[in-house]
Amino acid sequence: MSCHSQPRKIFEGVACRHEFYALLSRHNQSPFDEERLSGRRYAGEWFEVTEEDHDRMFEILPPLFMRGDHFAMREFLAQSITSVFFTLKIDGRFRWFHAYGDLAAACSINRIRAAIIDRESRSVRSMSRAEKLEHIWSITGPDFRAFADQCFAADFAGRRILMVFPAVQGKIWKLIDDLTDEEIAAKLPVQFRHLGESVAA
């Protein structure tokens, strides 16, 4: 693992407890391939949590370490990847975040912190296309999302797919990266459909 796993926001808004656990399980259907076993599938993902969930996770087990504005969980998800919880003061108020950090990369936690502060300090609320796709993946139930297996075309193998409902075809599986703007809008919660699109996540 290296520090080149880009930090990325995977959920818009503050996750409630149900959403928090769902986000921790968002890749449970993924194949046990190198991406998953190495932790690359998870490294850099982050989202906002409540203060209560932040504090509850701190109390579950003694943290692996606690430094300034963050602590790391003792249990590793894959190789050197573990949950890191941040308490960050952004625009004059404290907010709490969960991320998957790579403890084998010295720059990992600092990169994630910087990405969160940069992303959440923007004066205009917006979502990039990548953030919209991650949010859609996060909120879609397991019956309507999957990782393509041998039943799909070879170039789909191991990639994320979602069920869509074209008017003329009933329902089909489609690569998440190939969703049209209209399909993205249809799958986003109403309050996010008309947010401006940011250039970078």
Rank of each mutant, 00 (worst) to 15 (best):
M1C: 06
M1N: 11
H4R: 11
R8V: 01
A22P: 03
L24R: 15
R26A: 02
Q29T: 03
Q29M: 12
P31V: 03
D33E: 06
D33S: 12
E34D: 14
S38D: 10
G39P: 14
R40W: 07
A43Q: 08
G44T: 07
G44R: 05
W46Y: 14
W46D: 01
F47T: 03
E48R: 15
V49R: 08
E52T: 12
R56C: 08
R56T: 11
I60M: 15
L61Q: 12
L61V: 02
R67L: 06
R67S: 13
R67Q: 13
D69K: 08
D69G: 13
E75Q: 15
L77I: 12
Q79E: 13
I81K: 00
S83A: 13
S83I: 07
S83M: 10
F85L: 13
F86H: 09
T87P: 02
T87L: 08
K89H: 06
D91Y: 07
G92H: 10
R93W: 05
F94Q: 13
F97T: 04
G101M: 09
D102P: 02
A106G: 13
C107R: 14
N110I: 06
A114G: 11
R119N: 10
R122V: 05
S128T: 06
K132F: 05
L133P: 01
L133S: 03
H135C: 09
S138A: 14
I139R: 01
F144C: 11
R145D: 04
D149Y: 06
D155T: 09
F156E: 00
G158N: 05
L162S: 02
M163N: 00
V164P: 00
V164S: 00
I172T: 13
W173Y: 12
L175S: 08
L175C: 06
E183C: 07
P189D: 02
V190K: 15
G196P: 12
E197H: 04
E197D: 09
E197L: 13
S198W: 00
V199C: 08
